[in-house]
């Protein structure tokens, strides 16, 4: 994983940043280089930053209920820039939304109660699948 980089982002108006900060530290402790966009990003700014920084994955944290609108847009904006960077979503996501999110191209969804180990494993899995697909 040496040198693997993950962009973590808050899109939309959601100010809840406890989770994303904890996840940032968990990923950093696991050896990843973590870049945090800060609050109030748009799908376009996140996609542009991810492509510019040439990251290996994008992690979104959403707790405001806007994930069904905004998370797929991040995937679209990223693909529109010719990039296949996988997008992982974490936050309050009802079970009924999981399948539509997968269909919309979200690589993995992490929900409340996920342990550090589960987060790290899930991210590893996504990165490995992305590498295998290239």
């Amino acid at each position: 994983m040496a040198g693997e980089r993950i962009l973590i982002a808050k899109v939309g108006l959601d100010g809840h940043d406890r989770g994303i900060k904890v996840v940032a530290r968990i990923l950093r402790d696991a050896g990843y280089e973590v870049i945090y966009t800060g609050l109030f990003q748009t799908p376009a700014t996140v996609a542009a930053a991810a492509v510019d920084e040439d990251v290996d994955a994008i992690g979104l944290s959403m707790l405001s209920g806007a994930h069904m609108t905004l998370a797929p847009l991040v995937v679209q904006e990223t693909r529109a820039r010719g990039s296949e960077i996988p997008v992982i979503l974490g936050g309050i996501v009802p079970a009924a939304d999981l399948e539509p999110l997968r269909t919309a191209g979200i690589a993995a969804v992490l929900t409340p109660g996920a342990t550090a180990e589960q987060i790290v494993n899930e991210v590893r899995g996504v990165l490995d699948r992305a590498a295998a697909g290239r």
């Binding site: 939309g12 108006l13 959601d14 109030f40 748009t42 405001s64 209920g65 806007a66 069904m68 609108t69 905004l70």
Partner: peptide, 11 residues
């Protein structure tokens, strides 16, 4: 507002 997309009345 474009930034409000998907957030109106949610929370």
């Amino acid at each position: 507002d474009p930034m409000a997309l998907g957030e109106v009345g949610r929370c």
